[in-house]
């Protein structure tokens, strides 16, 4: 496996995104909306309801749950990008000539994965920094301390988000093998974020609390699932499979 060869594939895909408005919007609009929208919302609440009527623990609970949106975004954005990069290539039938170059299946797959991971993680991390700065500004007066950064968001951004991205990319690959248009792939891929939403809901109604320990446990579980899916997606992306069994 030559990383440089995989990077050639990734760079080419990244360049193709420039011609795709929807991908650019997805990568910019969604995380930016979260990063600016939530602080604005909190600021509005505080100014409207009055800080006195929102006790600090309630405010903290609210902000904490917002952090989780970065996980949901991590599980959603790569689907949009990876579906395009793999199903798109399948539609243009450009995988066959690509496979005929001195590039291994693993290198192409890694390139495709990087092409989906790099921009999504960059978008998520960049917007999370903006989010933390804005949220701190909005809440510091009320809380009396800087809420971010903290251990939970560190686990979310450094463990859960990358894992969720990887997970979403792998699911995209498996879907791409069976689906013949980008939109369908993206729609089916939409279900990927359901378990994360479920986790979110469960934490909101108070069945589990998403503290650092629980977040680490979830990350561990997700790592296992991601590892298992890696084997599957690797098998789905073998040249023989692609050329003879992909529909």
């Amino acid at each position: 496996m030559r990383l440089s060869q995989a990077w050639l594939v990734a760079r080419h895909d990244l360049n193709l995104y420039r011609h795709r408005r929807t991908i650019l919007y997805t990568l910019v609009a969604f995380p930016l909306g979260v990063a600016i929208g939530f602080p604005v919302l909190v600021r509005y609440l505080l100014s409207r309801v009055g800080p006195a009527s929102i006790p600090s623990p309630v405010l903290v609970g609210l902000i904490d749950s917002f952090s989780f949106f970065f996980v949901i975004a991590s599980a959603t954005l790569p689907i949009a990008v990876a579906s395009y990069s793999i199903v798109g290539e399948k539609i243009e039938k450009s995988l066959e000539p690509l496979l005929a170059t001195p590039t291994t299946d693993g290198e192409i797959l890694l390139g495709k994965a990087l092409a989906a991971l790099v921009p999504t993680l960059a978008a998520i991390w960049a917007s999370s920094v903006l989010y933390m700065v804005l949220m701190d500004r909005v809440t510091v007066g009320h809380l009396g301390y800087l809420f971010y950064p903290n251990a939970e968001i560190a686990v979310v951004l450094l463990a859960l988000a990358p894992l969720a991205c990887l997970f979403a990319v792998e699911v995209s690959i498996l879907i791409s093998a069976r689906v013949a248009d980008v939109r369908t792939a993206q729609q089916i891929g939409g279900i990927v974020f359901l378990p994360f939403v479920l986790l979110y809901v469960v934490s909101e109604v108070g069945i589990v609390t998403l503290d650092t320990l629980h977040l680490l446990a979830v990350s561990g579980g997700l790592a296992l699932v991601t590892l298992g899916l890696f084997a599957l997606s690797r098998r789905a992306f073998e040249r023989e499979e692609i050329l003879t069994r992909w529909k």
Partner: peptide, 17 residues
Amino acid sequence: RRRIGLLPENVGLYEST
């Protein structure tokens, strides 16, 4: 694959570039 060139049945070019 370094030594050969292939024109597949479907041209498979990247249309947007």
